[in-house]
């Protein structure tokens, strides 16, 4: 149970340096460099805005917001969750040299890889905040919840990656399976529509169980909807239980597979 924590002892500096290296590796050698970290999400956002707002919805407002403002915080959370899930799962395989060629605390690979994504997330959040200001959403006390949602989201996907990264390193098929599932999860999550507006019991159950939807909604509550995280205690309890279960599962999977990784990678 303790091996992941033990591996992180006194490794803080190393993890930060490797996170930096990871970022550089991702955007190396291209003219625009780190700019790509912004261009790609901006383009995605534009395409969805165009398809839904101009195309399908034809400029109608949603919950009192323009469609663009409605999807903006949701996408900012989604970009991180998507990267943390897909790239996080690939992290050990991608850094297999650390597993195969030196004695290395493998679980820290997951940490520095997700930290690199978090850095991009901070940048995007800052830009989103400015855009919201321009749209007339002025700073208020609810915005401070970012400092709860963001670290919790980071931790949540960190413990998820304990399982997915080790399993993906063990079997490439698992990684492919995960990638396929993520496309589905995007549409099941209330990013381009409002899940709480659906009044069907079993749909609501699924929505409540979907952690992606929790964070998407959380970001919306924080930045545009002015709601507190404790206003829906049922959801809060569900996500906390999920977090604990995933953490236990992650520690179990890591412990079970860690020692076989150098043999199969």
């Amino acid at each position: 149970m303790t091996s992941i924590f033990k591996e992180h002892k006194n490794q803080f500096k190393k993890i930060l340096i490797l996170a930096k290296t990871d970022l550089r590796k991702t955007y190396r050698g291209s003219f625009i460099g780190t700019g790509w970290a912004l261009i790609k999400p901006s383009f995605t956002l534009f395409v969805y805005w165009f398809a839904f707002d101009i195309g399908i919805r034809q400029g109608r407002e949603i919950n009192g917001h323009s469609f663009f403002v409605f999807i903006l915080p949701a996408f900012i959370a989604w970009f991180f969750m998507n990267d943390a899930t897909i790239l996080g799962a690939a992290s050990i395989r991608q850094n297999s040299q650390y597993v195969k060629k030196m004695a290395f605390p493998v679980s820290t690979i997951i940490t520095f890889s997700n930290l690199a994504k978090l850095y991009v997330h901070f940048m995007l959040t800052a830009i989103m905040y400015i855009i919201l200001l321009l749209f007339g959403y002025y700073p208020n006390i609810y915005n401070l919840q970012f400092f709860l949602y963001c670290p919790f989201m980071f931790l949540f996907f960190l413990v998820l990656t304990w399982s997915t990264a080790t399993m993906s390193a063990f079997s490439r098929d698992f990684q492919n399976l995960l990638n396929s599932i993520m496309t589905g999860i995007f549409w099941l999550t209330g990013i381009v529509y409002d899940t709480s507006a659906i009044n069907i019991k079993w749909v609501q159950v699924i929505v409540y169980l979907n952690p992606f939807d929790f964070f998407v909604k959380g970001y919306r509550d924080t930045f545009i909807d002015n709601r507190w995280f404790f206003e829906n205690p049922t959801r809060l309890c569900i996500i906390l239980v999920e977090f604990v279960l995933l953490a236990i599962l992650g520690m179990y999977n890591y412990k079970r597979l860690r020692k076989t990784l150098p043999d199969v990678l």
């Binding site: 340096i17 290296t21 190396r28």
Partner: peptide, 27 residues
């Protein structure tokens, strides 16, 4: 243990030799 097996493992291509001394040192 110093292993003269995989000498270039852990190098980062984009970093300078000097930076890599530090990176590898941390590793």
């Amino acid at each position: 243990v110093a292993a003269l097996l995989e000498l270039t493992a852990g190098f980062s291509e984009e970093m300078t030799g000097r930076e890599n001394i530090y990176l590898k040192g941390y590793l």
